[in-house]
Nucleic acid binder design. Structure first.
Length: 455
RNA sequence: GAGGUUAUAGCUCAGUUGGUUAGAGCACUGGUUUGUGGUGCCGGGGGUCGUGGGUUCGAGCCCCAUUAGCCUCCCCA
């Protein structure tokens, strides 16, 4: 006999947790649908040919690969063994667990391109798997809640993502957050302008630490990453950007005026700000963050990240625009933009802030009816049936146990009301109902009972 | 992938320089004038101290290995 244990980086979700998780899922789904996104599900398992090469070399390593069924080792030769794991992998595994929802979505779009109404808006809420090293807020199996729209370059989509995120987080009660926005084109523009074209990634990694380590240390790091003194002196504008958005945009445009792509990026960004304003969003929690890069290499335009404030977790959502996601599946030129919410992290944030609605603590059962055996059982069963017909969540205690036990059960399950039906009550044709929170008991008629429990 | 840290009851943790039957709180369970839970009182069960080796007369404590959790970096939801 072995002790039971969970696979590394995975979790069980008990009833209390599931109630809260379901609440988060429901809120997200509700808003996605409100904005016209349609549901989609794709398999947990995909062919490795679909998955490999989409997330960079590191991503390939983080993919969970599935061993072929049957004698998976039958095709391996001694030669393969000498050539190392890559050769062997091709022969023992041809499927893997999906790593995110975007790539399977791209595959779906390509395979169904003729049926889909373009632009196609879909949302998808499913688990994904990464063979990463587990850490705080980071698991090997976790849910993503994606919403993407493909087949249009309209910046309305970006703006809608911004307003949609506001609505979702406000519905959840996460009121302190900021949507950081950047644009890959601006990053390219900056590197072009400072004379370090193509070094966007190094630039981002360094300036990302600006808040933490300060400007001097960032400049040191830039030197280490192969930027020269001239590059860095030209970068100074970035450290002194104006706070107000109008001034900020004009400074950026002036700074990047010699970079066509950079200017385009700023214009896109500005347009998003304008559209968000036209969409009547009051006090938008959006901020341009030039250090925002995001790991996934397929982003080409806007990049989003949502950060919860005053909590240790941080990033709870990310996304951006990709111009050629479906290109690797033979369908070039299809632009899309999407957002992904991390439920697990949102859960942790809400838990840390203690903002889950109180009624989620309670059982979904509203009434428990007692069971005192043969003499009273039929009345109890009848009562519970009537309550259910009324649409009231109710249950009967399944065994003829001591009343103490039945109350303990109701208490443990946090059922707010218990209807006590003993011989006395049945004779008098009354229903004795106890409020478990206050301890008050009252005798009611059937109609009064139904009324008092009505929502 | 690199580094740090922890592992003792279901949970959170004590456990002295190595020394006899390893403790607490919470949880669980039984009772408390038998038709009343959550608060009181009395009792009870439960740990081969993560796993495998080693040192020692003797290891929860020291050494090595291993596994898992947590944290930092990298990367990410």
């Amino acid at each position: 006999m072995s002790k039971p244990s969970l696979a590394r980086g995975t979790r069980d979700f008990g009833p209390e947790t599931m109630v809260k998780r379901t609440f988060i899922f429901d809120q997200i789904k509700k808003v996605y649908q409100k904005y016209g996104f349609l549901p989609l599900e794709t398999p947990a398992i995909e062919n490795l040919s679909v998955l490999m090469g989409k997330y960079g070399e590191e991503g390939d390593q983080l993919l969970f690969k599935i061993l072929n069924s049957g004698d998976f080792a039958k095709d391996i030769t001694n030669n393969d063994l000498e050539n190392g794991s890559k050769e062997i992998l091709r022969k023992v595994s041809e499927k893997g667990l999906k790593y995110d929802l975007t790539v399977p979505f791209a595959r779906y779009v390509v395979m169904n391109r003729h049926q889909l109404a373009m632009p196609f808006k879909r949302f998808q809420i499913q688990p994904v798997w990464r063979a990463d090293r587990p850490q705080k807020g980071r698991y090997r199996e976790f849910y993503q809640c994606d919403a993407d729209v493909v087949g249009t370059e309209s910046l309305i989509c970006e703006a809608e993502i911004v307003t949609m995120l506001h609505e979702i987080f406000e519905n959840l009660g996460v009121s302190e957050f900021v949507i950081k926005i950047n644009n890959r084109k601006i990053l390219s523009g900056i590197t072009e302008t400072i004379g370090a074209k193509g070094k966007e990634v190094d630039l981002c990694v360094a300036i990302d630490k600006l808040d933490k380590i300060g400007k001097e240390k960032v400049e040191e790091e830039l030197l280490q990453r192969g930027f020269n003194a001239e590059n860095i002196s030209k970068l100074q504008t970035l450290f002194t950007l104006p706070i107000t958005q109008a001034a900020m945009f004009s400074t950026l445009k002036n700074w990047l005026k010699d970079s066509e792509i950079g200017i385009l990026g700023v214009q896109e960004l500005e347009e998003i700000w304008i559209l968000v304003d036209k969409m009547q969003l009051q006090n938008p929690k959006i901020a341009f963050d030039p250090s925002l890069a995001r790991g996934l290499s397929y982003y080409t335009g806007a990049i989003f990240e949502v950060k919860a404030l005053n909590v240790s977790i941080g990033s709870i959502s990310g996304g951006g625009r990709y111009d050629n996601l479906t290109g690797t599946f033979g369908m070039p030129g299809l632009s899309g933009v999407g957002i992904s919410l991390g439920v697990d992290r949102i859960y942790d944030v809400m838990e840390e802030l203690g903002i889950f609605p109180e009624q989620l603590q309670l059982s979904s059962t509203k009434v428990m009816v007692t069971n005192f055996g043969d003499e009273t059982l039929s009345k109890s069963l009848e009562t519970v049936a009537i309550l259910r017909q009324k649409g009231i969540n109710s249950e009967i205690y399944p065994e003829n146990s001591k009343i103490k036990k039945q109350f303990e059960y109701a208490d443990k399950k946090k059922i707010p009301f218990v209807v006590i039906l003993g011989t006395e009550e049945i004779e008098k044709e009354i229903y004795l109902i106890k409020n478990m929170k206050t301890g008050e008991q009252s005798t009611l008629t059937l109609n009064q009972l139904k009324e008092s429990l009505d929502v």
